[in-house]
């Protein structure tokens, strides 16, 4: 059943030319031990656009996101089947260094996680470990400006990053990701711990950043997906054999189409608020 759906989404994404694809998932399934979390996903993430993953809890959208920067490697039992490629290179190839992958594909987490260091060092950390040799002050300022945080923190760069408000902390985390100049920024529910005003600021930020970066955002908030993304992938969960639930891609298309004229009944039900 969902294989058929996946292939429909496959055809819809074939429209993107290969050069314009940043990340490509081909028949990707993710397992934790014997448990299958995500099943048979085909999906192309276009360059310099915002792609949103939406769907109910447990549909595997965060799991898939974490495969894009190999953060699932940290989970000993995690295993990825199928192929994920980044600019044509297999992310899970034997000679691919996960550290290198994460330098080029940054991530912002659900809960703001600044380091217990000064604001300045939060930004400088990533640059330093990546062998940055330029003007660090300038990089810190530029990154904070890109994250729309500079004016609020320019006089207290030596204060702890943890002294900032939640929304500021999240923008600090975005700034430190920008500072390592990745090609892709993955965001895992970046606004779920923020108040509406902070959420709005982060969303505005995403708009301004997509000229430079390819972005993939996982969100529970459909309005957010509608506001910020160009492409939207809707995932759903289904009970498999033995009652365990697995996630799968239902439909992937331009955000506008997903919300105004979804092809699948499930998508229609979800975006119209009938469940989830």
């Amino acid at each position: 059943m969902q294989n058929m759906q996946s292939s429909t989404s496959r055809t819809s994404t074939n429209a993107i030319a290969d050069q314009a694809v940043a990340l490509r998932a081909e028949n990707v399934s993710v397992y934790y031990g014997a448990f299958q979390a995500v099943r048979n996903v085909f999906l192309d993430v276009p360059k310099n656009q915002v792609t949103a993953f939406i769907g109910p809890s447990g549909c595997g959208k965060s799991t898939l996101l974490r495969c894009f920067n190999r953060l699932n490697d940290l989970v000993a039992s995690a295993r990825v089947d199928g192929k994920i490629s980044f600019q044509g290179r297999d992310l899970y190839a034997r000679d691919m260094d996960p550290v290198e992958v994460r330098r080029r594909i940054g991530m912002v987490f659900q809960k703001p996680n600044p380091f217990p260091k000064s604001i300045y060092d939060n930004i400088a950390f990533g640059a330093r470990i990546n062998g940055f040799r330029g003007n660090m002050d300038e990089l810190v300022e530029r990154s904070l400006r890109s994250a729309a945080l500079w004016d609020e923190v320019k006089d207290k760069l030596n204060q702890s990053g943890l002294a900032l408000s939640g929304g500021q902390q999240q923008r600090l985390c975005i700034a430190r990701t920008i500072a390592i100049e990745p090609e892709v920024i993955l965001m895992d529910e970046p606004c779920s711990a923020l108040d509406p005003v902070s959420t709005l600021r982060v969303e505005e930020l995403m708009h301004s950043l997509k000229e430079q970066f390819t972005m993939v955002i996982v969100t529970h908030n459909m309005q957010q997906a509608a506001r910020v993304s160009d492409m939207t992938a809707f995932f759903n969960a289904e009970a498999g054999e033995g009652g365990s639930r697995f996630g799968y891609l239902v439909e992937y298309n331009k955000t506008q189409d997903i919300f105004s004229s979804p092809q699948q009944q499930e998508t229609h039900d979800y975006v119209s608020g009938r469940f989830g």
Binding site: L71, V99, M107, F109, N113, F115, G126, I129, N130
Partner: peptide, 8 residues
């Protein structure tokens, strides 16, 4: 995770 995600 934050450190690893920055390529540390």
């Amino acid at each position: 995770q934050g450190a690893l995600a920055l390529g540390a």
